[in-house]
Every structure is written in structure tokens, then in C-alpha cells.
């Protein structure tokens, strides 16, 4: 091919720039605001921050002493932000792990062991997405109470995986279905049991697809706002989103914005690290025999 003319290069470059700005701007904008002092927030330039400060973030971690009757309980945070952070991480890790374990098991069954009607099973599982989410929290609440999980993080560990599971099972089982059978068979002949072949061969070689499923789960879980705020009531039990949503942080509180951005840090870091794997995994799931 001949080298591209300058205008094609320029066009390509500006398209890239446009796409990047479009995608990043709202987040950049929010970050900028969260680094501002109240004065600058009102009078400064909206697009840049002249005197960046972490005071909004510090506010989240501030400890206010509120003396109660007992000595041991003497210290309480104004926002139990560290608890929220811990809860959030627990929920993220737990949901991704649960989804992956349950999803891989189901996907292996459907894609590789193929019980009669496996396609219909897979479709039925995927069809869970047609259930409208809007009102689901009302009956779900009854379920959660029946199970004795109200105001418990475990309730989210129950609900979140179901939001990501159908897609993960769909994707993983398509992947397992197209995986050459011979690789597993070779392992069986080489002396592995079915379980050994699965854990030593199938699972490690599927890493990109597992990453993709994990990232999808993380993205789904991290984007929820509603379920967390409906099911978690006591401040100490809340996740960051639920917490910031319920206590009286109005939208104009910079602390709130700072807080939610903190939440984004782990999610975005993980996503960035595995972003290429995400695409590779999705691709592998789509290619026959990848």
C-alpha cells in the first residue's frame, strides 16, 4: 500500500482525538471538580483546577470524636468511609469470584459436557435479562428477608452474580463449546483425570476468557447503585455507592463526588490492566475453536 496522504492522517488523528475527548471528558470534569476548594469551585475556570486540594477526600476519612458512654466506642467517623471501602472491595471480590466459579461450572457443563438440550438451557439462562429490573427490588426484598439477609452484604453477594451470570455463562459456554476437544483428550490420555485435566489444562488456557468474564462482572457490579442503596441500610454495612446515596449528601457536596471517584480507582485500575485481555477473551469466545 502507498503511504496515506497527509489529509487522511490528519482526519484519522482528529477522529481519535475526538473519540478520546468524548469518552474521557465527563470523568475528567468530575475529577477536576473534586480537587477544588469551594472558592475555586464557584469562581474558577470549570475546566482546570489551579490549586488542587485533597481536602474533599480528607473529609471522607476524617474522624470526629463523639463521646459516648463507653470508652471503647469513643471514636466514630463522620462517614464510616473506611468501612464502605472495605465493604465495597469485599463485594467486588466476592461477586466476581462467585460469578466466575458458578459461571465456569455451568458453562463447562453446557459447552463441553452438553447435556440434552444444552442450547435451550443456555438460552433460558440468558433470557433472565428480559426480566425488568425496575420493580424487582420489592419481591427481592421479601426473598432477602426470608433468607435472613436483610441489611447484609451477603444479600448483594446473592444478587450481583445473577446480573452478570447470564452473559458470562453464554460467553464462556460458547468458548468451551468451540475449544478443540482434543486438548482435553490429550490430557486424559497423558494420565490426567477429568478434574486434573480441567484444573491443569482447561482452566489455565482459558485465562483470557475468564478475565473477560471477570471484567464484565466487575463492570456490572460496580455500576449498580439502586440495589445497593435499597438493600443496605445501616451505615456501617453499606458500600460506597449505597452510602453516598443515602446519607444526606446532596449532589452539590464535593465530598460525595470525591468519594465515588475513590470507588472508581480500583475498578478502573483493574479494568485498565486487563482491558486488552477483555477484548482478547471476548474474541476468543466468539471465534470458533479459539
Amino acid at each position: 500500500m502507498n503511504p496515506k496522504p497527509w489529509w487522511a492522517k490528519l482526519g484519522h488523528g482528529s477522529l481519535m482525538l475526538l473519540a478520546t475527548v468524548y469518552c474521557v471528558f465527563p470523568i475528567y470534569f468530575m475529577l477536576v471538580q473534586s480537587l477544588k476548594t469551594p472558592e475555586e469551585d464557584v469562581f474558577g475556570n470549570p475546566f482546570i483546577v489551579m490549586n488542587p486540594t485533597l481536602e474533599n477526600f480528607e473529609e471522607l476519612f476524617e474522624r470526629k470524636s463523639e463521646v459516648r458512654g463507653f470508652v471503647g466506642d469513643a471514636l466514630r467517623r463522620s462517614y464510616p468511609f473506611l468501612d464502605w471501602l472495605a465493604n465495597t472491595l469485599f463485594i467486588f471480590v466476592g461477586s466476581v469470584a462467585a460469578t466466575l466459579v458458578i459461571g465456569v461450572a455451568a458453562a463447562y457443563a453446557l459447552g463441553r459436557l452438553r447435556p440434552p438440550g444444552f442450547r435451550w438451557w443456555r438460552r433460558a439462562i440468558f433470557a433472565a435479562y428480559v426480566i425488568p429490573q425496575t420493580l424487582l427490588f420489592i419481591p427481592l426484598y421479601q426473598v432477602v428477608i426470608t433468607l435472613g439477609l436483610d441489611d447484609s452484604l451477603l444479600a448483594l453477594l446473592l444478587i450481583y452474580p445473577t446480573m452478570a451470570l447470564p452473559f458470562c455463562v453464554w460467553m464462556l459456554s460458547a468458548y468451551f463449546q468451540h475449544l478443540p476437544r482434543e486438548i482435553e483428550e490429550a490430557a486424559l490420555i497423558e494420565g490426567a483425570s477429568r478434574a486434573t485435566a480441567f484444573f491443569r489444562i482447561i482452566l489455565p488456557m482459558s485465562r483470557p476468557v475468564l478475565v473477560a468474564a471477570g471484567i464484565f462482572t466487575l463492570g456490572t457490579v460496580a455500576s449498580d447503585f439502586m440495589i445497593a442503596s435499597v438493600f443496605l441500610l445501616t451505615p456501617n454495612n453499606q458500600t460506597i455507592t449505597a452510602g453516598l446515596g443515602t446519607f444526606d449528601v446532596a449532589l452539590d457536596e464535593l465530598a460525595a463526588v470525591a468519594g465515588v471517584n475513590l470507588l472508581a480507582i480500583p475498578v478502573v485500575t483493574i479494568s485498565a490492566v486487563f482491558a486488552r485481555g477483555y477484548v482478547r477473551g471476548l474474541t476468543a469466545a466468539m471465534v470458533e475453536g479459539a
Binding site: I183, E185, A186, A187, G191, M205, R207
Partner: peptide, 27 residues
């Protein structure tokens, strides 16, 4: 299969993609 003391070579080779050649052979 593992107790039959046989070895098999497949048309698509069925090598373990995540292992080195050495580990493939040593498995």
C-alpha cells in the same frame, strides 16, 4: 484412557497452548 498405556497424536496436534514445549512434553 490414562490406564491404557497409550499415546496419541491428533490432527490438530492438541498442544497445551499455555505451556512451553518442554512442559507439553513433560506433562
Amino acid at each position: 484412557p490414562k490406564d491404557r498405556d497409550i499415546a496419541m497424536v491428533f490432527q490438530n496436534y492438541a498442544l497445551y497452548p499455555h505451556m512451553t514445549v518442554y512442559d507439553n512434553m513433560a506433562f
